[in-house]
């Protein structure tokens, strides 16, 4: 190689760890089980629709759809138990990260974001590891799936449940279960899909990492905490 020949420039892109392998598996299980539950639950909620009539045309098919729904429900329940169990173990060991817990700062961030969207403020608020939108997503689905799991088992085992609780809990659970599922589906389609696909394509839940540019743009406070560097003026925040 002559002295005039230039060595190729290697550009290294920094990335920051965001989700570990366990969290990514949990998310994948949540997507798969949730999708199966929705697709097998909708025909049961709306049996008079033509498509539901096709799917539930024979008693065998009704039975099959229910069995698939129950298997997916068990997968989701195990996933939720693992998630809760892991959180409890980490809490006992004083190792539970507090990033997802809501704080007063999230209320201020939401207010500032509203002002930004109404053109009353020039720049967006700067966020930490999780912004208020992500916390809303997590806690909405946390309680939503909790309600659906609890009421789902009441509907699944009505005889056993009504030996302990009054009979009125079964129709109440049925209403809460199916209504909450519709609300959760709309929430995911509108809120979650918008934030991770349309606002920007955020695949960190699958890759486990966020690039330096994304960290600077969307999680400026966390970026500063990790690197000790301030965001340069003019950079997105």
């Amino acid at each position: 190689m002559t002295a005039k020949q230039k060595t190729p420039t290697i550009i290294q892109h920094k990335s920051f760890p965001r989700f570990d392998l366990g969290q990514r598996w949990e998310h994948l299980l949540l997507i798969l089980s949730g999708l199966v539950l929705l697709l097998t639950g909708l025909p049961q909620k709306y049996p008079s629709l033509a498509i539901s009539q096709d799917i539930l045309s024979t008693p065998e098919q009704v039975n099959l759809i229910r069995q698939v729904h129950h298997i997916a429900a068990l997968v989701l329940t195990l996933e939720l138990l693992y998630h809760l169990g892991r959180a409890i173990v980490l809490l006992v060991r004083r190792k539970l990260p507090g990033d997802m817990l809501p704080t007063w700062q999230d209320v201020l961030d939401a207010w500032q974001m509203l002002q930004y969207l109404l053109f009353l403020r020039k720049d967006k608020p700067r966020f930490g590891k999780y912004n208020f939108e992500q916390k809303v997503t997590y806690w909405f689905l946390f309680f939503g799936f909790g309600i659906m799991t609890f009421t789902g088992f009441i509907i699944w085992f009505p005889v056993q449940v009504t030996q302990v609780l009054p009979g009125g809990v079964v129709p109440a659970a049925k209403l809460a279960h199916s209504t909450e599922s519709i609300v959760a589906a709309i929430f995911i389609l509108v809120w979650h899909i918008y934030h991770v696909h349309f606002e920007r394509l955020n695949l960190s839940m699958f890759t486990g990492r966020l690039s330096e540019e994304e960290m600077q743009a969307y999680h400026a406070k966390e970026y500063e905490r990790l690197t000790g560097k301030k965001n340069q003026p003019g950079e997105k925040s």
Binding site: F16, K95, P97, G98, L226, T227, G228
Partner: peptide, 11 residues
């Protein structure tokens, strides 16, 4: 009861 993670360098 919750942990505050120490600053980490990038990868």
């Amino acid at each position: 009861l919750v942990a505050t993670p120490p600053p980490e360098p990038p990868d």
